[in-house]
């Protein structure tokens, strides 16, 4: 088992993981804001979810601890198993949510003929009366044309 020699090294390793997870969260958030295609939105959600998963597992890490699996009569310390069990279920829920979103996107593409979010928002606004269109369309900033 690899051991970390100094506290500085552990700190650097921690910032590496934090940077990775925070970077994924930021990229995913940007995709959620700026996406113009519905599948890009789902890809952004995927990135955001991956970042959160990495962060939560990184919180449970301990230096000089083994993976939480007993081998023989080992008595050493093990890393925290609770975040790992949480993330294990979160990954599977994530793929379920992704599949549901994809099914909705396929259905919308079949009905509307487009997955462009601005276009879909415009059509949604057109089906309502102008008085209620502003309330039912909080993301009306997307309706601007480039």
């Amino acid at each position: 088992m690899e051991t970390l020699s100094t506290a500085t090294e552990l700190e650097w390793l921690g910032w590496t993981f934090y940077a990775g997870s925070a970077g994924l969260v930021l990229l995913g958030c940007y995709a959620l804001f700026a996406a113009r295609h519905a599948l890009r939105l789902l890809l952004g959600l995927f990135l955001l979810e991956s970042g959160v998963n990495l962060f939560l597992v990184a919180v449970g890490f301990r230096p000089d601890a083994a993976a939480p699996i007993l081998v023989g009569e080992q008595a050493g310390s093990m890393v925290d198993p609770l975040p790992q069990a949480l993330i294990l279920t979160a990954i599977v829920i994530g793929v379920g949510v992704l599949a549901l979103g994809l099914a909705l996107a396929v259905r919308v593409a079949k009905e509307e003929g487009t997955l462009d979010l601005a276009e879909l928002g415009r059509r949604l606004a057109a089906t309502h009366t102008p008085a209620t269109a502003e309330e039912t369309l909080p993301q009306s900033g997307r309706t601007e044309t480039p």
Partner: peptide
């Protein structure tokens, strides 16, 4: 690397 082989297997297979 974070010593979470269970989660790594799930991420590789599912993600």
């Amino acid at each position: 690397v974070l010593r979470a082989p269970d989660v790594a297997l799930a991420e590789a297979a599912v993600g």
